[in-house]
Write a protein that binds this DNA or RNA. Structure first.
Length: 492
RNA sequence: CGGGGCGUGGCGUAGCCCGGUUAUCGCGCCUGGUUUGGGACCAGGAGAUCGCAAGUUCGAAUCUUGCCGCCCCGACCA
């Protein structure tokens, strides 16, 4: 990760515009705070979907789909949840347009088409889903329900940021119903682990698991489990959340079930989600000044073949060989693209695929045909070597996992080097300012202290990690007793 | 919603303060030729209601007012 990038990334939107837009991933649409996901970007999302879907199904979940519109009366049923989202809702109030009598060819809202009850464009689907679950749940035999949906949601944020906080985003949201508290907590933890596993092993993004402070807990949840990642500029990013909802939604929507011994009990719930924000995390974790760097597991194309030639005759031979190599690699389940377009030169293609982050590039020209070699270049290290054509499948098969783990290790080293233990508030401020990253510090556990620290430093409690051994200490701000260190950081 | 900045071919921009022929330059695009192992070169060409609307003026990209949009900072948030 180049120095210039890190410096520049203080202005992150610029980083995005340069890298992401240039990298052909997405561009701002004219819709406020929304993004167009271009085909290349979408194919990355599809890879993520496929992998997550596999993991969800392997843990007993099914996909379903619920409506986009939430009648206001349903939306407001769970008060904490409704209040938490109230300030960022798009609301449908009318259902028809008409010609504007004052302006030829222009339309206006038909005032007679006002809806009796407003519809909220879902910012999340708990309300609709729990309204539905009530009808599905009568007995313990109906439980558990473990459903996931792939959907778009709308949150009318005051300020948007490409990928990290768009007004509309794509995500998956899981909603489960359980007979016991233990089972629901188990589910919440299971998903938290699924997310961590996915981020680390598939996206090569190291994350820390933990739970949120009360102030950062999801509106309507008892406990929010999260995975938290660190970006190259030293700011933290919430990468996925899994909520234990307790019986809050069962209360709000009156969802009860008959137990084996004939009693009536309220259902326990969870919800969890990850979004296209993860693509932002991907970019901000691995990219460098040449553009995107994609982990092989995720890359739409793991290998690109660029033929090099002068004459038509050479072209024919080189492309023929390229196609042979392509077939061989495809037969070994490697995602490979052959770019034999005659409309762009090799140098242009090299730069282009670096921008797109393709992990491996094979260049093959007349000299290689003579020697039986190809030039193999790595995106992560930008190094090149000549290898034997006959060995190409084995070599690629070795390199891809090597690149995958190298990317993860590089990011993890960076992350680990940016977790700093601090016990003094002046030091807290200094480290936050000079170095950034996570600050491991004692906290007295109160909302007031968290707010105060945020006010003074802009850092918040990112999470209370699981893997910390309890350790007695004193709150970094108030000096009050504390049982455990928590991680603070400036966050997106 | 407050504070600051900005809207000019597909992209990035000059011109605006101090109004005056045909709106500048680079990238990209098209045609022809030479090229092709790291973003080619030469020649020619196409492409802009200067964010929208109203006003001032003989004349507006330039001045005035209103509106819209974008970016940054803050409050809010995944």
């Amino acid at each position: 990760m180049g120095k210039s990038l890190t410096k520049r990334s203080q202005d992150y939107s610029k980083w995005y515009n340069e890298l992401v837009v240039k990298a052909d991933l997405a561009e701002n649409s004219s819709v406020r705070g929304c993004m167009v996901i271009k085909p290349y970007g979408y194919s990355i999302w599809e890879k993520m979907q496929a992998e997550l879907d596999k993991k969800f199904k392997a843990t007993g979940h099914e996909n379903a789909y619920f409506p986009l519109f939430v009648p206001k009366s349903l939306f407001e049923a769970e008060e904490a949840n409704a209040e938490g989202f109230a300030k960022e809702c798009a609301v449908v109030t009318h259902y028809r347009l008409q010609n504007n009598p004052d302006k030829q060819g222009k339309l206006q809202v038909d005032p007679h088409s006002k809806l009796e009850e407003e519809l909220i464009v879902r910012p999340t689907s708990e309300a609709v889903i729990w309204h539905t679950y009530k009808k599905w749940i009568e007995s313990y035999r109906d439980l558990p329900i473990k459903i996931n949906q792939w959907a778009n949601v709308v949150r009318w944020e005051m300020r948007t940021r490409l990928f990290l906080r768009t007004a509309e985003f794509l995500w998956q949201e899981g909603h489960t119903a359980h007979a016991t508290k233990e089972e629901a907590i188990e589910e919440t933890e299971l998903i938290n682990n699924v997310y961590a596993n996915f981020a680390e092993n598939f996206m090569a993004i190291p994350v820390i698991k933990g739970i949120k402070s009360a102030g950062e807990t999801f509106a309507g949840a008892e406990t929010t489990y999260c995975i938290e990642a660190l970006m190259q500029d030293g700011k933290a990013l919430q990468a996925g959340t899994s909520h234990f909802l307790g019986q809050n939604f069962a209360n709000a929507f009156d969802v009860k079930f008959a137990t084996k011994d004939g009693k009536l009990e309220k259902v326990w719930a969870t919800s969890w989600g990850v979004s296209t924000r993860l693509m932002g995390a991907l970019i901000m974790t691995h990219s460098d000044d040449q553009g995107l760097v994609l982990p092989p597991n995720l890359a739409p194309h793991q290998v690109v073949i660029v033929p090099i030639y002068r004459s038509d005759e050479q072209r024919e031979q080189v492309v023929k060989k390229s196609k042979e190599l392509q077939s061989k690699l495809q037969a070994a389940d490697i995602r490979v693209k052959l770019d034999d377009r005659d409309t762009h030169k090799p140098g242009w293609k090299f730069a282009q695929y670096e921008l797109k982050g393709v992990p491996l590039r094979i260049a093959i020209g007349p000299k290689d045909l003579e020697k039986g070699t190809v030039e193999l270049a790595r995106r992560d290290t930008l190094s090149k070597e000549f290898v034997n054509q006959d060995d190409i499948v084995d070599i690629v098969n070795n390199k891809l996992p090597e690149i995958q783990s190298k990317l993860f290790n590089k990011a993890k080293t960076y992350r680990d080097n940016h977790i700093t233990k601090v016990d003094d508030f002046d030091e807290f401020k200094k480290v936050l300012e000079d170095k950034g990253g996570f600050l491991s510090a004692h906290w007295d556990g109160t909302q007031e202290t968290e707010d105060k620290i945020k006010e003074l430093t802009k850092a918040t409690v990112r999470l209370i990690p699981f893997d910390k051994h309890p350790e007695d200490g004193q709150c970094v701000l108030t000096g009050k007793p504390s049982k455990q260190r928590v991680l603070f950081a400036k966050a997106y």
